[in-house]
Amino acid sequence: MRSPSSSGQKYSLSAQPQPSLRQPEFVAALLAPETAVPPGLTGPDGSPAGKRFDIYRNNVAVSLTEALETGFPVLRKLVGEAFFAALAGVFLRRHLPSSPILARYGQEMPAFLAEFPPVAHLPYLPDVARLELALRAAYHAGDASPLDPAALGALAPEALDRALLIFSPAVQLVRSIHPVHAIWAANSDPAAPRPRPGAQAALVTRPGFDPLADPLGPNDGELVAGLMEGKPLGLAAEAGGDLARVLSLLLSRNAITELCT
């Protein structure tokens, strides 16, 4: 901003035409803190912009780091606040948000973590990030009316075998060769038990407005995965797992919206 013109002249600020600074150059300098401030930017009285440009650099890095901290609280707890801030600094320069909706920011985090050498010794981190993304997506997912549990009970066994389930938009399954739910729970709730090694799946649902994650054994996880792919109940159950237990959980979490027979 320049001072308002008191002379009433509209085109009076600059006696000489100045070369224009294009936005790509501005962005390149914005994302590279060690580089020089682009020419043509000034403080009062035409002095070089200096530290003033760093305010924009800082705003971008800090605000996106905060968005990642909000979106991945358990990941942050697992690696520590200082390490997470450094990790976020690398991540955000590689993966700026692809839209202004920050609630969606960080979809690349699991793949980033899988390839980020400093966390190679923590192979479960990508799956924890996947679970945190699923919980966030569930929070913003579309609303749906849950199926009346009586509809399932009313079916004859053969009809039940052929039935397909339609899931609420909030429902997601995160399968892992690690105890992903137990790791997430132990770092969300101090009272949760310590994780024990082994494969685990997490079922993410939103019974009301608050998302939930429930642990599933590998076989129940396989069963839910089949149901979510659209397999009929009978076929999905061939994968193993306990169909009655799974259906009871799905119904209690308002995860099913329709039964197709």
């Binding site: 901003m1 320049r2 085109y11 600059s14 100045q18 043509g40 930017l41």
Partner: peptide, 17 residues
């Protein structure tokens, strides 16, 4: 209207204009 921390040498108009 924005909050500004710096100005552009190439500007030829005031912000209010």
């Amino acid at each position: 209207n924005p909050s500004s921390y710096l100005a552009f040498r190439e500007s030829t108009l005031t912000e209010t204009d």
